[in-house]
């Protein structure tokens, strides 16, 4: 696989850290070198939150991703902050229901997924992050140059990341991921 550096970014509470954690766990289960680094501090309370996830065949150097191959953006401030940093040839996956703006760059692939609206409509409320994650895995993580795992590994990663006391949430998370993959 080619080294994959992802930034997940959005408002605190949208689940960007969790989406990153599932991705990191999938990398672990696929026997890759991985790191997960959150932004931490006052910006997490109501402001923007983000995390860097690195997946590679080689040991990870800096876990801080300054030029991601893939940006998952869940709100406009996050898109504005990272859009120019994405590597040429990279991928941007964004919630087009919350981000009313087109990406002007022509050297990246952009996927507009109305994930927060879909989450409401399809009764997977609050799982906009998992819809975007579904798209990330179908588009990037399981096919193409950056592919490092399979749908089965993703499913195992979700099971690892959902604590036993919330086991009843597994079904809706799977539904949201499948929904994202179809977009």
């Amino acid at each position: 696989m080619k080294d994959l550096n992802i930034v997940f970014a959005g408002f605190g509470g949208q689940g960007v850290l969790f989406a990153g954690k599932v991705t990191a766990y999938a990398g672990l289960l696929a026997d890759k070198e991985i790191s997960w680094l959150p932004s931490y501090g006052p910006e997490m309370r109501g402001g923007t939150a983000n995390c860097s996830v690195c997946i590679s065949d080689r040991p990870i150097g800096s876990p801080l991703v300054t030029n991601p191959n893939v940006l998952v953006a869940m709100n406009l401030p996050s898109l504005d902050k990272f859009v120019d940093a994405v590597e040429p040839g990279g991928v941007i996956i964004l919630d087009s229901a919350l981000i009313d703006k087109k990406v002007e760059r022509t050297d990246v692939s952009v996927f507009y997924i109305p994930s927060s609206a879909l989450a409401e409509k399809e009764e997977v409320r609050g799982l906009s992050n998992m819809i975007l994650l579904g798209k990330l895995f179908s588009q990037v993580c399981t096919s193409g140059d950056w592919a490092f795992c399979t749908d089965e590994i993703l499913d195992a990663a979700i099971q690892k990341c959902i604590p036993p006391r919330k086991a009843d949430m597994l079904g809706v998370n799977r539904k949201a991921i499948a929904l994202g993959a179809q977009q």
Binding site: K21, S35, W36, L37, Y40, P63
Partner: peptide, 10 residues
């Protein structure tokens, strides 16, 4: 440091 404390790795 804060980076090593906050980051997750296997």
């Amino acid at each position: 440091d804060g980076m090593l404390g906050q980051m997750m790795e296997p």
